[in-house]
């Protein structure tokens, strides 16, 4: 299997705060890998480091074998890393359709853009109904669909997803996890950050447990779900 993404001994700081203390992580093609951990463990920071919104002080981020950690965010996207950011961050005063179009900013082939848009609408029919509506007027679940759809418009080789189920009603949480599985079936490689560890470990192939900036456990998702420590700390029993 081809290694898509690799983090080697990554250290990231927010000012004086040592947020990531030597993260090692790998994602292979076609996998769903999940990163679980408590609030403030560094999950979001890991994703932000990968997509270049913050740069590591030490260590390397390798994407398909090439170091990308020194690149600005917009060039990392160009390599093929899509990011569904925490809190969805859709553009509130762009329409649903414009949000999707801007997702495909790097694609100059109109034909491909239309094709991908049709795929996204196929995946989330709700978005098609609301295509002319401003992003800011959507419900939380619809915004999450839009954020995922927007990232898919880049046709990324790996999709980073930051807490896609956060703040959603249970029905929508199920829908989002079904979508993640469906995307993986269609061949997408996914790195998923979640607080909902139970759901995340059900859908993922492998997992990493992050604690105060360090990876304390890793392995196949099924094994992690059985692990006593994980059960106690993250699965509520």
């Amino acid at each position: 299997m081809k290694k898509v993404l690799e983090l080697k001994n990554v250290h990231t700081y927010y000012g004086q705060i040592h947020a990531l203390k030597g993260i090692n992580l790998e994602v292979y093609e076609g996998e769903i890998v999940t990163l679980i951990g408590a609030n403030g463990a560094g999950k979001t920071t890991t994703l932000r480091t990968i997509s270049g919104m913050i740069h590591p002080k030490e260590g390397e981020v390798l994407f398909e074998g090439a170091a990308v950690h020194h690149l600005p965010a917009h060039l990392i996207v160009k390599r093929g890393i899509g990011h569904v950011p925490e809190g969805r961050r859709i553009f509130p005063r762009l329409t649903v359709e414009e949000n999707l179009e801007i997702g495909a900013f790097l694609e100059n082939d109109r034909h491909k853009v239309e094709e991908r848009k049709a795929e996204v609408f196929d995946l989330f029919p709700r978005l098609a109904e609301r295509r002319k509506q401003l992003g800011g007027t959507l419900s939380g679940g619809e915004q999450q669909m839009l954020a995922i759809g927007r990232a898919l418009m880049q046709d990324p080789r790996i999709l980073l997803m930051d807490e896609p189920s956060m703040g959603l009603a249970p029905v929508l949480v199920d829908l989002i996890f079904e979508t993640i599985a469906e995307l993986n079936n269609r061949g997408k490689t996914i790195l998923l950050v979640e607080q909902n560890a139970l759901k995340a470990l059900q859908v993922a192939h492998r997992g990493y447990v992050l604690q105060t900036g360090e990876i304390t456990l890793s392995g196949p998702a099924k094994e992690l779900a059985e692990n006593e420590e994980v059960k106690r700390a993250y699965l509520g029993g």
């Binding site: 919104m53 600005p72 917009h74 961050r89 553009f91 762009l94 801007i102 790097l106």
Partner: peptide, 16 residues
């Protein structure tokens, strides 16, 4: 308009 609304997220779309 995207940059005006949220420059950081715009850069995640590949916009400089």
């Amino acid at each position: 308009r995207a940059v005006a609304q949220d420059a950081q997220t715009a850069s995640l779309m590949g916009i400089d």
